[in-house]
Amino acid sequence: LVMHDNRITIVEASQALKECSASEHEIRFTSTVSLPPACSMDVLYKTLKQRFSGHNVQHASDGSLQVDSVLVKISGESDEGTDMLVSWPYQDEELGSSLLTMLQNRFAKEKRE
C-alpha cells in the first residue's frame, strides 16, 4: 500500500520501493548437490519437467537447466558422479529450496544403492 496525498493505492512491491526512493536488496542462494553418474541432463530435465509441471522448465543455451528463475548447472564431473549447482533468487525461495531438497533426496538415495 502506498499513500499519495491522503489517498491509498495498491502497487507492486518493486514500484512501492521506487516511489520511496529505495532500492531492493538482491539475495541469491547457490547450493551444491551431487548426482550419480547415470543421471544425465536429459534424465534431470524429464524429472524436473514431471515434478514441476506448473513451472517453466527449459534447457538454457549453455547446457544448464532452468525452472522459472532457478538455475541448475554442472560444476564438475567425475567417475563418482556429477556435481551440480542449484542457484536461485530470494523471490523464488520456495521453488529453489524445494527443487534442491528434491534432488538431494531422490538422487542421493540412488547413489547409495
Binding site: 536488496h25 538482491e26 539475495i27 542462494f29 547450493s31 534442491l100 538431494q104
Partner: peptide
C-alpha cells in the same frame, strides 16, 4: 546484494 554459497 548478498549471495550465499552453501554446500547443500
Amino acid at each position: 546484494s548478498t549471495h550465499i554459497f552453501c554446500e547443500g
